[in-house]
Simulated scan of single mutants.
Amino acid sequence: MSVPILYVVLAVAALATAAVVAAPLRRATPKLFAAVVLVVPVLAFALYRIVGTPAALDPALAAASAQADAPTMEEAIAELEAALRRDPAQPEGWRLLARAYAAQGERAKSRDAFMRALEQIPDDPELLIETAQARAQAAPGNQFDDEALAQLRRALALDPGNQRALWFIGVVQRQRGDDRAAVETWETLLPALDADTAAALRTQIDQAREAAGMPPLAPAEVASVSADDGAAPGAGLRVRVSLDPEFAARVRLRGDATVFVIARAAGGPPMPVAVERHALQSLPLEVVLDDGDSPMPTAKLSSLREVEVLARISATGSANRSEGDLESAPVRLALPADGPVDLVIGAQAP
């Protein structure tokens, strides 16, 4: 299929999807309906430019596309901002805007947009968790404040056993030096996890136990709290990201450079279904990609059977893809994954 035809197909599909998602708004708020139908496809194509595969396009067509007057991510965000100024009573619009801000690294704006959404739907557990996480990410040292903790506890009250809420509550307890409480929280979470994720959490539990003056989990205790491992789906996709040692030895990289960890549908649209942003100095690092990392509310990691995962160092620190960025080889795998995915940036192709 030629690139122009492909763009037409993608545009039609994006418009159709946006129209279906925004259909409930058609009668109540026709102006916002029109804005969402316009903005969602624009955001989708902007995200494609961030994490797509331009090398697969013909160079001449790619150059022509770059020069075209196509909407940018910033323009798409501006359109959504304008729509919400006209009609702010749209929680899903605020949630979409918050995720777009997060993808751009605008953490304070992301926090504030999530708060606007939460004002309108205060009993949505996932939104409560996203808002608490956004508050921490916008705070010095990624510290969860009292309001964020209250949001996490509210989410857990609405959805008992919510894995992300339990995990973050344990993180808050560790941040505040209440290591014994963190142990109790995380041990409650253990039985719901798959074997690999549970093993990683046990490491955190043992560190918290040591800080609390408690012995590590004995083998019998491990067997007890892990008896149900594998009975429930994992909390997300574990990804380990590192730099190739030889590459790191010969190339000087800024420690504050930005690393994006990305999951997208395998064989499908190139837009991300989950993305996290970290500092290069954090490598090697291990993250868990899940539905909370989705930049688009209509595309969830948990809804996919197969994904492609990659890590990218941004040369500019911007979410927009640019010349000079470095990527790991993409890894394709089925979900749920049996174990963590290893991504090595700078490794020579075999």
Rank of each mutant, 00 (worst) to 15 (best):
259 V>A: 05
223 A>E: 12
125 P>G: 02
316 T>P: 06
340 P>Y: 12
203 T>P: 05
139 A>L: 02
124 D>W: 07
230 G>S: 06
68 A>C: 06
171 V>K: 13
2 S>E: 09
188 T>R: 13
200 A>D: 12
345 I>S: 05
238 R>H: 01
271 M>F: 15
280 L>R: 06
245 P>R: 10
197 T>K: 04
86 R>N: 12
336 P>S: 09
17 T>P: 01
301 L>G: 02
163 Q>W: 00
294 S>W: 01
157 A>V: 03
1 M>R: 09
259 V>W: 05
145 D>G: 11
45 F>L: 06
329 A>L: 14
117 A>C: 11
322 S>W: 00
216 P>L: 07
282 S>H: 06
205 I>H: 08
138 A>W: 12
137 Q>I: 01
12 V>I: 15
53 T>S: 03
112 D>L: 12
135 R>H: 13
186 W>Y: 07
256 D>W: 06
326 L>Y: 13
325 D>T: 13
198 A>D: 03
173 Q>V: 04
96 L>F: 02
163 Q>H: 06
131 T>L: 10
29 T>I: 09
126 E>A: 11
108 A>G: 04
36 V>E: 07
183 V>W: 08
44 A>G: 11
165 A>H: 06
221 E>D: 15
15 L>R: 15
321 R>Y: 03
25 L>I: 02
236 G>H: 12
308 E>D: 10
66 A>N: 03
52 G>F: 07
148 A>V: 09
142 N>Y: 08
278 H>T: 00
228 D>Q: 15
107 R>A: 15
126 E>Q: 12
12 V>N: 12
216 P>W: 06
151 Q>H: 11
288 V>M: 15
6 L>F: 09
326 L>K: 13
146 D>V: 08
286 E>D: 09
232 A>I: 00
259 V>E: 08
330 P>E: 03
122 P>T: 05
48 Y>L: 14
99 R>E: 10
314 S>M: 00
117 A>V: 00
150 A>F: 00
16 A>G: 08
293 D>Y: 05
175 Q>D: 12
265 A>V: 10
111 R>M: 10
300 K>F: 02
311 A>L: 03
32 L>F: 10
255 G>N: 12
207 Q>R: 14
69 D>L: 10
326 L>M: 13
62 A>W: 09
133 Q>H: 07
127 L>I: 00
197 T>N: 09
267 G>E: 08
262 I>D: 11
116 R>A: 13
238 R>T: 09
280 L>C: 02
51 V>T: 10
259 V>R: 01
257 A>D: 15
263 A>D: 04
10 L>M: 14
141 G>I: 04
93 G>H: 03
184 E>D: 14
60 A>D: 08
233 P>Y: 02
130 E>Y: 10
240 R>Q: 14
101 Y>I: 05
324 G>Y: 09
259 V>C: 01
239 V>G: 05
247 F>T: 00
56 A>G: 15
233 P>N: 06
315 A>K: 10
333 L>I: 06
80 L>Q: 04
227 A>E: 15
125 P>D: 07
